[in-house]
Amino acid sequence: MIRVLIVDDHAVVRHGLKQILNDTGDLRVAGEAGDGVEAIQWLRRHGDDCHVVLLDISMPNKGGLDTLSQIHREFPRLPVLVLSMYPEDVIGLRTLKAGAAGYLTKQAAAEQLVEAIRQVASGHRYVSPALAEQLADSFVNGYQGAPHELLSDREYQTLCLIASGKTLSQIAEELKISIKTVSVYRARLLEKMKLKNNAELTRYAVSKGLVD
Rank of each mutant, 00 (worst) to 15 (best):
E111I: 04
R73D: 06
G123T: 14
N141P: 01
Q19C: 03
A130M: 05
Y103L: 07
E155H: 03
Y185K: 06
N198F: 04
F75K: 04
P79F: 04
T67P: 10
L135A: 05
H10G: 10
S69W: 05
I171Q: 03
K180G: 10
Q134R: 06
R94T: 11
P76D: 02
R14N: 11
G99D: 06
H124K: 15
D212T: 07
L210C: 06
V182H: 03
D89A: 01
W42I: 06
R28S: 15
A98S: 07
R118M: 14
Q134K: 12
L168F: 02
D48E: 15
I20V: 14
I171G: 08
L161M: 15
E155M: 07
L131F: 09
S69G: 01
A30D: 12
H72V: 10
A109K: 14
V90E: 02
Y204D: 01
D212A: 13
V211R: 01
A30W: 06
R28K: 14
S138L: 02
R77M: 00
T167E: 02
Q70Y: 05
T24K: 11
H46L: 09
L151K: 05
I177Y: 03
V7R: 14
V13H: 06
E173K: 12
R3D: 14
A187Y: 13
V52L: 07
I20G: 09
K176E: 02
D49M: 13
S169N: 10
E111C: 09
D48I: 13
A130G: 00
G36H: 05
R94W: 03
S128M: 06
D8A: 09
F75W: 00
K62S: 02
L21E: 06
A130K: 13
S84I: 04
D8I: 10
P60Y: 06
G31F: 07
T105W: 07
A101P: 04
H51Y: 06
V114D: 13
A130I: 09
L55R: 09
I71Y: 09
L55C: 12
E111V: 10
G64L: 00
A100Q: 03
A187L: 03
R3W: 07
G31R: 07
K196E: 08
D8P: 12
A109C: 00
I171C: 08
L43C: 10
A136N: 01
S128H: 06
E32W: 08
R94P: 00
Q41H: 10
M59I: 07
D49K: 15
K18Y: 01
D212H: 09
A121Y: 13
L189F: 08
Q70W: 07
C50Q: 14
Q134G: 09
H124A: 15
R28W: 04
K62P: 04
I179Y: 01
L151Q: 06
T181E: 13
M85A: 07
S69R: 06
D212W: 11
E200V: 07
R14M: 09
E32G: 10
L150V: 01
D23L: 14
F139I: 14
I57Q: 00
K180E: 12
K166R: 12
D48V: 15
E88Q: 05
L78S: 00
T67V: 01
V7M: 14
A101D: 01
T95N: 03
A11V: 11
A121C: 12
